[in-house]
Design a protein around this nucleic acid. Sequence first.
DNA 1: GCGATCAGCT
DNA 2: CACAGCTGATCGC
Length: 499
Amino acid sequence: MEIPIDGGDSISESEGGDLDEDGFPWVSFSDEEAIDRTVGDDSERESFASEFYRSGTEWSCLIDSKEKKLVQADLFRMWGFKRPSQVQEGSSSRVSSKKMRRSDGGDRSIGPAKKGSVGGNNRPRICPFYKKIPGTSFTVDAFRYGRIDGCLAYFLTHFHGDHYGGLNKGWSHGPIYCTPLTARLVKMCLSVNPQYICPLELNVEYIIEGIKVTMLEANHCPGAALIHFGLHDGQSYLHTGDFRACKQMQSYPILLNKRIDVLYLDTTYCNPKYKFPLREEVVNFVVKIARNSLENRPKTLIVVGAYSIGKEHVYLSISQELGVPIYTNASRRRILQSFGWHELSGKLSSDGHSTPLHVLPLPHLRHENLKQYLRTQGQSFTSVLAFRPTGWTFSESIGSQLDRIRPNSNGNVVIYGVPYSEHSSFTELREFVQFLKPKKIIPTVNVGNAAHRDQMQSYFRQWKLDAARKEGAHFYHPGPKFVTDRGLNGKIQNGSRKE
DNA sequence: GCGATCAGCT
DNA sequence: CACAGCTGATCGC
């Protein structure tokens, strides 16, 4: 129980008067850090409240139908403050009115970046509270904050940089729990000491620190998991990590007809302007275009853009449907091989000239780049057909009508942006939430902007009202009723104001 | 020089 | 705008 000087989270326990004007505990820092602080107003005191607000949960709870408002005491309880049973744990910081450094939360979604410190800036960051699971000693996707005070188990939902950031071969802060596939990637790509890596099979209940933990397929990228926590007191939480909600999730036994008290929700596309088709439809579309292209011009090079992991179905389907292998560079091949995904591994080729299907890093899919790439391929190919699979090829006019997608052409290079998303669309989110009926929702994405938070909260509230009304209508008024979903959706504002 | 991280970019 | 990176700059070691 030593004083955290390594950048660990140091939100203090708050007994007595160490509260800010809003009645929240102060975020405290060591003297050293306060002195190191060169930016910012001396008199500007950053409180836990401002961190709390910035992180976007003050309204992010489904409000009871009885309009019961959230009171401060609920918040304290919810986030583990003022819990007598926990008082002994590292309450290191007797906070006087020390200077409060702002915490940027480490995520770009949390507030604007501070100027004045660049490059290898290693000042400690504070773990946002929504990455901590209350009532447990767990954090989720929180590796960039050094050792987190009181955290005994660090969960990783999936292997994307913005979630594992901070993990490296020097990691020694505690056990990392993730799916076996993610575990292999953490070991292979980040050289994390294997003694810290704890793989958890999907759909198996484990007891960790006395808490029931179950990993569930998240329908995001390979290895991605939803994490279900069953607490001693019967509370149960679901953390979605990043996920794409789908019908199949409604048959997960641990979710079916079970109460979820808190849902930590991937709200990446929590706005009705985000509509996209099922991934199968997009894949069929891509395959169709690719086939036509190859038939009309046999010397077409088909390029699919992808980040480290994810989007595999796009190029695997082309490979399977057109009967061509997949070329990609050695580093990606190594990663794809590690999936243990037999159909995929069997299609990989190390010879770019032997197949018209190449996978390249997504940022490379630009006309100039692709022209140059074509030149490096000798005379095997004379034109390029490229696909950028990304969720934010949104365009409301296109909606789910794939045929209306127009490619960008430049000479012999054609680039299609296709709405292949590995996050839930707005309607998928709504259906999932209305299925799960969580008591509270904590958004984990787009929480850095107050307008976005309010917007999301109003959607949550509307979903709940709609669901309740539907049940009521069904009970009292059998037969078709006002089943319009145009309720709040009309008033979308462009809330992209900077704070 | 190497690894890690940040702003800026897409 | 968002994704989930990448690039180049800049720090500590």
